[in-house]
């Protein structure tokens, strides 16, 4: 419960320090997600009359609508049934506090030993492998990340491993030109594993710091394509035993329950170490972050918040959840004062 208290204090207590430009951008990008999530819970509580079966049905729906994931939603409302009985919570104030507390507890508990940082090799080139289904934003994420790494003075190399989709190689090459980093590429339809092999070789001999490997989008139930991915991952590890340092699964924030299956299946063939949550600047509800943590046990490491080069941000889970629930805690406090 410590985390819950901490957040509560942070919002009712002293004002936080003036945010930097980067933080501001981050806040703005996620503002919509938070707002919609908070709004939903607020309107649920505003219509609250008594705690009965209908209320729990509504709560379930609200949580599912916010994309917190089906299992999580059912779990929370089941636990809440117990909790409400135990604590005999009947007032609006008490119920809303129990809900938020449950959400935060769950979030904290499930993510106890998660690590949201990107890991780099201590010696030799670092390899990041990007995987995911079609159209989630792998290539775009690589372009943005290359730009950021380059800004911090790292020598970056890109590998155009998507040899299947029309125009994918050109897309990565264009990013390479914009960001001014070299791209290892072969003609369309060539074996992606061989592109990756060449790229790893080059990264080693020319002493690049970071190699970002793009792969073709594939649906997780396509056995042959998943095997191809396994091979790519194998080729990397064979050349550099400690690589890939990160296997990042790109997930579209608007994806529903299927996101969970995607993560499970990709985890089976490659050692997925983290998630890139893309397109979070839309109307998607922030609840997906809770679902990912509760049901996948994978840390979100990066979030995509827009189309500009610097719209890729490191993910700070504490700050996110504080934002997600902060408004709610404030409003329940205001209610308390009124009563």
């Amino acid at each position: 419960m410590g985390f819950f208290e901490k957040i509560k204090q942070a919002f009712t207590g002293e004002k936080p320090a003036e945010p930097t430009a980067a933080e501001k951008k981050y806040d703005e990008g996620l503002a919509k997600s938070r707002q919609t999530f908070g709004d939903k819970l607020n309107s649920l509580l505003a219509n609250f009359r008594t705690v009965d079966e209908d209320f729990f049905d509504d709560l379930e729906e609200t949580l599912i609508e916010s994309d917190v994931g089906f299992e999580t939603a059912v779990k929370i409302s089941d636990e809440l049934r117990q909790e409400v009985k135990l604590k005999n919570a009947k007032t609006k104030q008490a119920v809303s506090e129990v809900i938020i507390q449950k959400l935060i507890e769950l979030y904290e508990q499930e993510g106890a030993d998660e690590d949201a940082k990107l890991h780099f090799a201590t010696d030799g080139p670092t390899v990041f492998l990007f995987v995911g289904v079609n159209g989630v934003g792998k290539t775009t994420t690589i372009g943005k990340l290359a730009y950021q790494l380059k800004k911090t003075g790292k020598r970056v190399l890109l590998a155009a491993g998507d040899t299947f989709r029309a125009g994918a190689i050109e897309q990565l090459a264009e990013w390479g030109r914009r960001v001014e980093v070299p791209v290892v590429q072969k003609p369309a339809r060539s074996d992606p594993a061989s592109v990756v092999y060449d790229a790893v070789k080059r990264a080693k001999t020319e002493k690049f710091d970071v190699l970002l490997v793009d792969t073709a989008g594939r649906l997780q139930n396509k056995v042959n394509l998943m095997k191809e991915l396994e091979k790519i991952s194998r080729v990397i590890t064979r050349e550099i035993p400690t690589a890939p340092q990160e296997v990042l699964l790109a997930l579209d924030a608007t994806t529903g329950q299927n996101a969970l299956t995607q993560a499970k299946q990709f985890k089976d063939v490659t050692p997925v170490s983290g998630i890139v949550l893309t397109k979070l600047d839309g109307t998607a509800k922030g609840g997906i972050v809770l679902a990912i943590r509760n049901e996948l046990h994978l840390p979100v490491k990066l979030v995509g918040l827009g189309e500009q080069l610097d719209d890729l941000q490191n993910f700070d889970p504490e700050k996110f959840v504080a934002g997600l629930f902060g408004g709610l805690l404030q409003s329940t406090d205001a209610d308390q004062q009124q009563e």
Partner: peptide, 16 residues
Amino acid sequence: VYRPAAIDQLQALGQQ
């Protein structure tokens, strides 16, 4: 005209 190489993609498909 926004996404890099989107036109290339359509041209490649057109050829196909």
